[in-house]
């Protein structure tokens, strides 16, 4: 009882604010983003592939949580289904077939990728300068087609989940394409790893190279 009284004002304060829970969710987002960054750096630094697999599991858990915090439930759902479970299993079975440790890379050879990464990062930051503010309801992305989807789905398709309406009907062809991508991935595994695949194969030595 005492405890409840002590904390009550704070919780009331939160409850009374204009967007209940929004600021808290925002804080959650910040923390999750920080953890994502930390995990990513750790993955880069780590030489042990097993540890990297572990961390990538954590990474996908975090990103799913992040998507949830951003209210992108369907994306989070996919991330949860693929990232946490299946992809870890697949990464591990991949590691099982190769070495366990990453080979060290020359310092010189890391220079170019680093430069590229920096340039790309700079470009992205440059782009954000003119970007509409985060969550701005008047941003073009929220006003134009997005708003039309929200308006028209109830009359056009009558499906409560607008995401499903967009995925399966409005942009159903894209989803067909993605299904084919998945199919292709399966086919690729069948071809490259499946029964009677290219196991072995000749090694051709090049005299010149």
């Amino acid at each position: 009882m005492l405890l409840a009284e002590a904390v009550a004002p704070a919780s009331e304060l939160l409850a009374e604010s204009e967007f209940p829970g929004l600021s808290a969710a925002f804080a959650v987002e910040i923390f999750i983003l920080a953890m994502l960054a930390a995990t990513a750096f750790a993955m880069i630094r780590m030489r042990q592939l097993f540890g990297v697999a572990m961390l990538s599991g954590i990474y996908s858990l975090l990103s799913a949580a992040f998507f949830v915090a951003l209210d992108a439930v369907d994306v989070a759902f996919t991330e949860a289904a693929v990232g946490a479970g299946v992809s870890t299993v697949l990464v591990l079975s991949g590691i099982a077939l190769t070495a366990k440790r990453e080979l060290p890379v020359d310092r010189e050879r890391t220079f170019l990728p680093l430069a590229i990464v920096l340039v790309v990062g700079a470009a992205l930051v440059y782009a954000t300068i003119d970007m509409p503010a985060f969550g701005d309801p008047n941003a073009p992305a929220n006003v134009y087609v997005g708003a039309q989807y929200i308006e028209r789905t109830p009359e056009d398709i009558e499906v409560p989940n607008i995401v499903t309406a967009v995925l399966a009907s409005y942009r159903g062809f894209d989803t067909l394409g993605e299904t084919v991508v998945v199919f292709t991935a399966g086919l690729a595994c069948l071809l490259l790893l499946g029964a009677g695949s290219i196991r072995g194969g000749g090694r051709h030595d090049d005299e010149e190279h």
Partner: peptide, 26 residues
């Protein structure tokens, strides 16, 4: 509604089979 359900079924089947295929292959 019918279209969406059928299409989603197709996706589900394809994805499930592919995932298992990949797992088997590895």
């Amino acid at each position: 509604h019918i279209g969406i359900i059928v299409v989603e079924l197709g996706v589900g089947l394809a994805v499930a089979a592919t995932m298992l295929q990949i797992f088997y292959a590895f």
